[in-house]
């Protein structure tokens, strides 16, 4: 656990110093969701039917785009090398980085999602499911996306490649996340689906940081 809290504190501090990195994904999320009524139709029934997919896809894209910079600046400044030669388990420092990133980028998405859901005519009764689904789903999206980010960190024009690598891996989270909301709309029990999302999260959190650490080592040439 050595280095975990120091890294967590530092990441939060870094985000405070350049708040755009934190605010932009949130802004992106809101803008993308509000494009859909304009593009399709403002009819409430249609919006309600589309809402789960729209919100989840927008959240997924926002998370993915925010991850491109997760390791890139560190790599460019040589901080990543320092992280790799430090006598700490990379597992925990990586976990700290992801946790900080989720607190600063993922959590705001979760908090703003009910407002967008309401705007897309979702009944208030399902907004809880929306939030808990995102609460369980966005950390998994962070971890899975960070695997891609670790593999593309040293590459120029890596952000397009990141999307190509990561989006297929996001499909289960998307299916279960949007599916849980769809079931809530039909007044079916959602807890089993949320449990599956939780299981995916547990798998991602336990194995993901290993893959990310390995990916970072591979990207720096080991």
């Amino acid at each position: 656990m050595k280095g975990f809290s120091a890294t967590l504190r530092r990441e939060v501090l870094l985000a405070m110093r350049s708040p755009a990195e934190v605010i932009n994904p949130l802004f992106f999320f809101v803008v993308v969701v509000s494009l859909f009524p304009l593009a399709v139709s403002p009819a409430p029934e249609l919006l309600r039917e589309m809402a789960p997919g729209v919100i989840w896809v927008a959240a997924l894209l926002a998370v993915m785009l925010s991850l491109d910079g997760l390791f890139r600046t560190d790599e460019e400044t040589g901080v990543l090398d320092q992280l790799l030669v430090a006598p700490v388990e990379l597992y925990f420092t990586v976990l700290a980085k992801i946790l900080a990133h989720w607190l600063l980028v993922g959590l705001p998405l979760v908090l703003v999602a009910p407002v967008l859901g309401y705007m897309l005519q979702l009944p208030v009764s399902v907004l809880g499911t929306l939030m808990s689904g995102l609460l369980l789903g966005t950390p998994s999206l962070m971890v899975i996306g960070a695997i891609g980010a670790s593999l593309t960190v040293g590459l120029r024009r890596g952000s397009m490649l990141l999307a190509l690598l990561v989006l297929p891996l996001y499909i289960p989270v998307l299916v279960f996340g949007a599916g849980s909301l769809g079931r809530a709309l039909e007044a079916l029990p959602v807890n089993p689906v949320l449990a599956v999302l939780g299981a995916v999260l547990a798998l991602a959190l336990s194995l993901g940081p290993f893959a990310i650490a390995l990916g970072l080592r591979i990207s720096t040439g080991d």
């Binding site: 050595k2 280095g3 120091a6 890294t7 530092r10 501090l13 870094l14 110093r17 350049s18 600046t73 560190d74 460019e76 400044t77 040589g78 901080v79 090398d81 320092q82 992280l83 430090a86 006598p87 700490v88 420092t93």
Partner: peptide, 23 residues
């Protein structure tokens, strides 16, 4: 390293204290 290993947004003290915490 060849690159300094410092984040521009942080002060020298913040940069160094993180590195020494890792070590």
């Amino acid at each position: 390293g060849h690159r300094a290993g410092l984040r521009e947004e942080l002060t020298p003290l913040e940069n160094l204290s993180w590195l020494s915490a890792l070590h």
